[in-house]
Design a protein around this nucleic acid. Sequence first.
DNA 1: TCTTGCACTGTACGTTCGTACAGTATAAAG
DNA 2: CTTTATACTGTACGAACGTACAGTGCAAGA
Lengths: 197, 197
Amino acid sequence: MYCTNVQYMDLTKAVVTFRNFYRKQKRLPSYQEVCDLFNYSSKTAAVYLVNKLIETDILEKDEKGKLLPKKLFHIPHLGIIKAGYPMPAEGSLGDSIDFYEYLLGMPGEMFSLTVSGDSMIEEGIHDGDIVIVERDSSPRNGDIVAACIDGEWTVKYFKNDNGHVGLYPANPSYPVLFPTESLMIGGVVVSVIRKYR
Amino acid sequence: MYCTNVQYMDLTKAVVTFRNFYRKQKRLPSYQEVCDLFNYSSKTAAVYLVNKLIETDILEKDEKGKLLPKKLFHIPHLGIIKAGYPMPAEGSLGDSIDFYEYLLGMPGEMFSLTVSGDSMIEEGIHDGDIVIVERDSSPRNGDIVAACIDGEWTVKYFKNDNGHVGLYPANPSYPVLFPTESLMIGGVVVSVIRKYR
DNA sequence: TCTTGCACTGTACGTTCGTACAGTATAAAG
DNA sequence: CTTTATACTGTACGAACGTACAGTGCAAGA
């Protein structure tokens, strides 16, 4: 239904307003604050709008009645796209990903590192990429680790060959590293992030 | 100072508790809820703890006195790590990144796609990676775009050579694509995300 | 032993919050 | 022309909220 009413408030605009508020305040607005945001003079108008957003699954209420963002920040995931030969438009949308949970929803302690160099380029870890590393993970064979070998830090594949531990590059023009003195595993690389803009 | 007091509450444990609450509720707890979380019987104890967290820059208060997470979810960024030959431990920490802002702090409409195939492998975009695409961006030469060429979707480099537009793969074993009928730019790839665990 | 600081308890108070309900202007539908 | 739905206004109320302040038990240091 298209509405020509001047009072008509587009839900998508409301979503943007809520998003911006949440981005700044890291919380959802109270009903009074919704009134301020949308120039309402009655809290009931705010209740009305919020209920619309709940109906569309953008917001939700917990068991205590507190408001929380359900899909406010979800990015629609449109499906699979070919990076080889083109494919018919897949997806049919519907699905969406909470990237905050996707990347950071892990229990352990994490840190990040900017990667310099190209020894892991065959693995798709390029110069300038950021790796998120989970501390304390005891690596399994094949894991990518951030490790300190003989006092120097590097990113490599971890391989434990019956107690004989080595750090393997993904780029064959670099040597395999075996510790002569010490090897400390800083953590396991759990994700790689690259930003273009 | 190390404290053997039974009542002693480690701030790092408090941070984890706050994080878990925020992860579930997408907001910070009220003072009453802090009491419930830490088994306090007085709200003043909650105020006391929150002030500690404010002093350590983990939380902050806005101009209205509302609580918000300052560095609660920041991942410490330890600096640059060599993926070639090892390098001395860089970093000296101190820095930290808010990955939520880092990845999603863009004004435009975004969607994501799972990449299939290896035509962009030289660019470090591998099979199974997720690309975040910003809609409506008019691509510049060299941008990676998600585009619909002659009715089929693909991820490629965009190049406009004096009106002669082509989609270029990063993998030379794939052909350059020129539209015979239609070309629709879905958007520009703004980031690539890969998850290992 | 006395003092000081820390980590709380217990109580009180004014403000803000979410909820509820009655009412209104407008537009679309029958 | 009447009915219905939409998008609000205005008012009221109890519960929850943040803040303040006086007081307590404990441990460390002088």
